[in-house]
Write a protein that binds this DNA or RNA. Structure first.
Lengths: 177, 177
DNA sequence: TTTTAGTTGGTAGTTATTCCCAGGTGGTAA
DNA sequence: TTACCACCTGGGAATAACTACCAACTAAAA
């Protein structure tokens, strides 16, 4: 097909199992206690395939841990990001979303339904690798965000953003890039 | 040398003048009234070279229009984005920032001081253009965000994110990608 | 076990943004 | 030039998404 490599489900299941298994060791390595809350949150994050927000993780974890607090979820997700066990994804202008997949990849976002998909994009990864410095700047990371309209949203026909005429004035040339 | 094309100041001054001049016509084309508030806000946005947040635009516009309200600034910036006269930039996890430069470009962000720089990156623009569709998805836009540490921040030495040891346990292997 | 640094939960902020609506105004038609 | 009115604005209240604080609790070293 020649389409880019979307990261699929078989891959995900196997990856998740390994990550959960290694989690305790990672915590100890980082000097963090292995608490039930942390385990529950990493499980929820790794089971998720929808790049959930903190409050969604909270809702899911609460099924098993009714007493967990939202504060703990926020705090813990942030820690996971710091220790490299999660990625924070900031797209458009909603709240932060979290990604348990820490392999190199980028994001495809449907601007209609706001769903996010992981995508491997090797040609983008090499984008700036040949010049470790941009002038004085030290390159840390290069993120690509691909905005699309998914099949569902396209069918619903969301192209209603055109110029709206003021009063009776007939609008002629309202081309938009 | 050989670095990518940062978009400089001469270019900016000339571009700004033209955009301000055309603004009235654009509004009328879109069926929007040309109010003093809108003119002041587009001027402030185009004069800015720092990708300001709404509240920063508000502070600047207030020097000339002490009675303008923050609500109007938010509303107007959002309208500018809709009519294609501005771009909203969402980086890291701060508030939204606005960019008066609507030519094709990408963003370089210093994760230390949070300054943002525009950069032309033609090789990235072509990244997905050869396949207008990613499966069912219709490609709308492809954004690249380059995270760096700028000279100033590097000199201040901000590499203090390493693993912090718990108790007396000696930490050995805390490599971080 | 004992000890204690690290961790948690609940509540009370804070920040950024949006909603609502009464009053004001730009732009059109006459 | 004037009258009209749909559009626009300002200010305060409301909301969403966090974040700070702190007393009580607990994982894990000794």
């Amino acid at each position: 097909m020649g389409g880019p490599a979307f990261l699929g489900k078989q891959w995900h299941a196997r990856y998740r199992a390994q990550r959960v298994a290694e989690f305790g060791a990672y915590c100890r390595e980082q000097g963090l206690a292995v608490t039930p809350q942390r385990v529950a949150i990493i499980r929820a994050l790794l089971s998720a395939e929808d790049h959930p927000r903190a409050d969604q993780i909270y809702a899911r974890v609460r099924r098993q841990h009714p007493h967990i607090s939202l504060t703990t979820v926020y705090r813990t997700l942030e820690q996971f990001c710091e220790m490299g066990q999660a990625r924070k994804v900031t797209l458009l202008h909603e709240g932060a979303r979290y990604d348990g997949n820490i392999t190199p990849h980028h994001h495809v976002l449907c601007v209609g339904c706001q769903r996010v998909f992981d995508i491997a994009l090797p040609e983008a990864d090499g984008l700036l690798h040949d010049r470790e410095r941009l002038g004085e700047f030290v390159l840390l990371r290069c993120l690509v965000e691909i905005q699309v309209l998914c099949g569902q949203c396209r069918r619903k026909g969301q192209n209603s953003t055109g110029a709206r005429p003021r009063r009776q004035r007939p609008v002629q040339s309202a081309a938009q890039s």
